[in-house]
C-alpha cells in the first residue's frame, strides 16, 4: 500500500474510532468499537437508535468534536460513515 493511501486510511480510522467510542459512551451501547461496522445504520436497522438517541448524539458531537448538527440533519446522516464525512468536512477536532 502506498504511503499516501495508508495515511488517508489511518486518518479515517482514527476519526471513526473516536466517533464510535463517543456513541458507545454516550448511548451506553453494549458493544465495543470494533464490533460496529463503519457503514452500520444508526436508525431503523443496524444500531436501531431512536429520536432520543439522535438528540444525545447531537450533544456528543458538540461536546467531543465541537460541531453543531440539527436533528433533521442527523436523521439524514444515517450511518457512522456519513457522520464521519460530516465531521471531516466540518474539520472537527477529533
Amino acid at each position: 500500500m502506498n504511503p499516501v493511501l495508508r495515511a488517508q486510511i489511518e486518518q479515517r480510522k482514527k476519526l471513526l474510532d473516536s466517533l464510535k467510542e463517543e456513541l458507545i459512551d454516550r448511548l451506553r451501547l453494549d458493544c465495543r468499537a470494533e464490533e460496529i461496522d463503519d457503514d452500520t445504520f444508526l436508525f431503523g436497522g443496524g444500531l436501531a437508535l431512536d429520536s432520543i438517541a439522535a438528540a444525545d448524539i447531537i450533544v456528543g458531537l458538540q461536546f467531543r468534536f465541537g460541531v453543531l448538527l440539527s436533528e433533521e440533519k442527523i436523521l439524514a446522516m444515517s450511518t457512522i460513515n456519513a457522520l464521519a464525512d460530516f465531521l471531516q468536512t466540518e474539520d472537527a477536532i477529533a
Partner: peptide, 8 residues
C-alpha cells in the same frame, strides 16, 4: 478490509 474505507 485494509482498503475498505471511505474517501479513497
Amino acid at each position: 478490509v485494509d482498503y475498505a474505507y471511505v474517501g479513497l
